[in-house]
């Protein structure tokens, strides 16, 4: 219940930032339109734009909460209520942003791609992006540094040679693999690899957020409550 309350309030807060919502939609759209002449590239770029938008939103959500969370912790919340609530909110937001792009691609390129796999790739991009943004927000308290780290991550993802083994270490490789399965009609090994990678990255990022959050919001050992 507490997780849902935190999620609801995070969604209410971000839904009132109309400028942010417009930019969240603009980023993947621009990515799509810039490469519209190439089916594969346009779809891969829209997924990257989606991941970028959601992770940035999560990063800033983490920043705006940093000064409120200590008092919420004292009001009865545990640290997992706070980060999981925010994670749920970012997943919901990400899926809401992804839905119109899925519809756009389905209408625009529906005959060229496997739509089920495309949905999985977009969902995985959102799934990975939310904890990644929260993780960067937990690692660096200032939003400018966090934004630059995210920019480096996304730029690396865009520029690295897809054949390079290092690409597997980038957080959104999973979407690329499933995207390849969806666009180029490759074998199911791409789908399996992508799903595995996405789940592992999501779990790893969430676990790190959990650890950092628990450390930051821990009750210090000098404080003890008298038995009642």
């Amino acid at each position: 219940m507490r997780i849902l309350t935190v999620a609801e309030m995070a969604l209410r807060e971000i839904s009132r930032r109309r400028g942010v919502l417009v930019l969240l939609l603009t980023l993947p759209l621009v990515c799509y339109l810039v490469r519209h002449d190439q089916v594969g590239q346009s779809i891969r770029f829209v997924m990257l734009g989606l991941a970028w938008a959601v992770s940035t939103a999560a990063l800033f959500a983490s920043g705006t909460s940093r000064h409120v969370e200590p008092r919420l912790r004292l009001s009865g919340y545990r640290s997992h209520h706070l980060y999981l609530g925010r994670l749920v909110a970012m997943w919901v937001l990400g899926l809401a942003v992804a839905a119109p792009f899925y519809t756009l691609i389905a209408v625009d390129r529906g005959g060229d791609v496997r739509l089920g796999a495309l949905a999985a790739a977009m969902a995985l991009a959102v799934t990975v992006a939310a904890p990644l943004g929260l993780l960067i927000g937990a690692l660096v308290p200032r939003e400018l540094e966090g934004t630059l780290i995210l920019l480096v991550t996304i730029s690396l993802q865009m520029m690295i040679d897809p054949a390079d083994y290092l690409t597997r270490l980038t957080p959104f490789w999973s979407s690329r693999e499933i995207g390849t399965y969806a666009i180029d009609h490759t074998g199911t090994e791409y789908l399996v690899r992508g799903l595995t990678h996405g789940i592992v990255v999501t779990l790893l990022a969430t676990a790190l957020v959990a650890v950092l959050s628990a450390i930051r919001l821990r009750t210090r050992p000098h404080l003890r409550y008298a038995p009642r």
């Binding site: 004292l74 009750t219 210090r220 000098h222 409550y225 008298a226």
Partner: peptide
Amino acid sequence: ICAGLLSPDSGEVVVDG
């Protein structure tokens, strides 16, 4: 420190309630 958000150099805080 009283709220348990920072650690003191020494000592403890006991809260009743």
